[in-house]
Computed example of a mutant assay.
Amino acid sequence: RSHAVVGAALIGMGERDAALRELSVARRLAESCGARALAAELVDTQLTLSVRRAPTVRSMDTLTVREHEVAELAVRGLTNRQIAEKLVVSVKTVEGHLSRVFTKLGVPCRTALAAPLRKMEAELVH
């Protein structure tokens, strides 16, 4: 799992090739331990990262207020259900917002959201 976390952090930093290497190590370890669900999740992340290219524009203007709100709650560790309850929307709505956030920020999963979100916020301050 630590290799998967490092891979996600590298994704957030824009280090795609290094992230793919870490995720590959994580996948091989998961497979060798019999953690099939984790291995499958890592394969999905690797495939997504392999085909998805980071957008050229990364600013808060690319996210709607609600998308930013959902992304912040996801970064804080809330589940989709918890986010839905907090914002009084459906889980499907939260999933839709997160999907658009992932696309706009060029990240494959919620664990990779923190770095680009913080970077965008820092750009607003400067």
Rank of each mutant, 00 (worst) to 15 (best):
S59Y: 12
T56K: 09
S99A: 11
A40I: 04
A8N: 05
G77D: 01
A19W: 00
A74T: 05
K119N: 08
Q46L: 08
A71T: 01
A37D: 08
G96I: 00
L87S: 00
R28P: 09
K86M: 03
L20H: 03
V101D: 00
L98P: 07
L87M: 04
R16C: 04
A9P: 08
S90R: 03
A35T: 06
E22M: 10
T45L: 12
E72V: 15
A40G: 14
T103V: 07
A19G: 09
L87W: 00
C33A: 13
V94L: 01
L113I: 09
M120D: 06
G34Q: 14
S90N: 04
T64M: 07
L63P: 15
L20D: 04
V65Q: 07
H126T: 14
L98D: 00
T103Y: 10
A9C: 12
L29D: 12
G106E: 12
R27L: 04
M13W: 08
A112K: 13
G7S: 11
D17M: 14
Q46R: 13
K104W: 01
K119E: 13
R66A: 13
A18Q: 13
T103G: 14
A71K: 11
D61G: 15
L38G: 08
R28A: 06
T48E: 05
K104D: 00
P108M: 02
V88D: 03
S50R: 07
S50K: 07
G14E: 05
K104N: 05
C33W: 04
S90I: 04
F102M: 10
A9E: 03
G96R: 09
H126E: 10
T93H: 04
A112Q: 09
F102V: 02
G96L: 02
E15K: 13
A40N: 14
R110G: 00
D44G: 09
A26W: 13
L29F: 07
K104S: 05
P116I: 06
L42W: 02
T64K: 10
S2P: 14
P116R: 01
S2Y: 05
G14K: 03
A114L: 12
P55I: 01
T111H: 07
T45Y: 11
L29N: 08
A18H: 11
L42I: 02
V57T: 12
S99R: 14
E85L: 12
T62L: 10
A54N: 11
M13P: 12
H3P: 14
H126Y: 11
R1T: 09
E22H: 10
T48Q: 05
L38S: 11
V94S: 01
P116M: 04
R81W: 01
R58Q: 05
R110M: 00
T79G: 01
I11D: 14
R36E: 08
R58T: 01
S90L: 04
V51E: 06
E69M: 15
S59L: 03
L87P: 03
A9N: 06
A26Y: 11
K119S: 13
K86L: 03
E121G: 10
A71F: 12
G14C: 13
A84H: 05
L98C: 02
A39E: 04
R100W: 01
T93N: 06
V43K: 01
A19D: 01
L49Q: 05
I83K: 00
P108G: 07
G12K: 06
L42Y: 02
H3M: 12
G34H: 14
S32D: 13
H3A: 12
L117G: 07
R58V: 00
V51C: 10
L98F: 03
S24E: 07
A4E: 04
L23F: 15
A84D: 02
C109M: 07
I83C: 00
